[in-house]
Design a protein around this nucleic acid. Sequence first.
DNA 1: TCTAGATGGTAGACAGTGTCAACCGTAGGG
DNA 2: CCCTACGGTTGACACTGTCTACCATCTAGA
Lengths: 200, 200
Amino acid sequence: MPQKKADNLKTALVDEAFAVIEEKGVEQLSFREIARRLGVSHQAPYKHFPSRDHILAAVVARCFESFSEHLNARPRGNTPADDLRNMGLAYLDFAKEHPLKYRLMFNTPLPPLKDHAEMLAQSQYAFSLLRDRLLSMDLSDPGGSPRDPEKHDAIFIWSALHGLASLMQSDAMEIVGLSEEERAIGTERLFRRLSLALDP
Amino acid sequence: MPQKKADNLKTALVDEAFAVIEEKGVEQLSFREIARRLGVSHQAPYKHFPSRDHILAAVVARCFESFSEHLNARPRGNTPADDLRNMGLAYLDFAKEHPLKYRLMFNTPLPPLKDHAEMLAQSQYAFSLLRDRLLSMDLSDPGGSPRDPEKHDAIFIWSALHGLASLMQSDAMEIVGLSEEERAIGTERLFRRLSLALDP
DNA sequence: TCTAGATGGTAGACAGTGTCAACCGTAGGG
DNA sequence: CCCTACGGTTGACACTGTCTACCATCTAGA
């Protein structure tokens, strides 16, 4: 029985790794099970990835890639402020539509960056999209001199977005007892708060 | 040689589990290594915890306990707004001083809540502290009817705080290339933004 | 054309893991 | 005085990541 040919195996391994994580959680990701599912020997993956961490890194890299594509596919706004809002929406939309991918990128203890160039590169690209959009705003210093186009507000915006996305898919919301509807209203409120803070 | 006696072993197990996580990461937490370190057989832990997940849950429960204590030890403010600010500072302070504990509470795939009552209880208590403080604010609806003391702004505040704490200890800051100083300024700016948004 | 090496697959072995089962000494209550 | 529960023990099992060794096939160079 012919197994997947040549290079195909490498991408098939990553596909299958993601599937396993989806089904049984990242903790349960097992090199041997991936091989088993693909009908291949337990050592075959080693020809393509030097260790289990490396295949995880490849999965995460693909998540960042998918994230970047999603951000780039957002509708463009007419003004910088408008476009920033669109990116914020796209950001949250991605986290909502692909919670696993989002968690893998942000809420998973990643193997050391230095050892995984591809993952690093993909994350850098994704973050550059965020950064460029944030810096395009001419953010004035609240209660200080206006026209201070520094990136300090980027942290504020990014924190609010990431915090929301992260809390929404944690158990926290359930534990404090916020209903679905309340969360939806809270989200919209957050966006209004952001707009008000940045667009005096 | 007499090993730790009786009940002491149970708490010693949790202590040692935390130490192991500290040294080698949560992934490497091993039932057998804990036992080995305590000079006890590899099955002894099973007399106190039915599974590896349960000892992890106990560690996390202790983190929440520690978190609650930290929040309660904050300096009290004179006004609700002031006290909320103090809690926000305490929140971030805890995340900064105990990054591992914070990560264990928020950024770790936890075993199903239902199976771990103690952990659930501790998290509920900690979150109730946050909730009570947030609800004590009489938050007006921005651009809507004033005096709308709902909890929708709680999500905004909590998101900003959690997002900041979470991003700060991830690799993200390093990847986008924000220096320590820029992060400090960004943090302060975030607080000012929060104040401005909530205290028109 | 022969041959050397790289590439991508195989099987086997080893240490380490979580967990199940069986055993065993001691303390305390009927 | 026995019995039971508790807190510990050892042994075994299946599973994991990873090391080593082997093998087939393609590809380049002589």
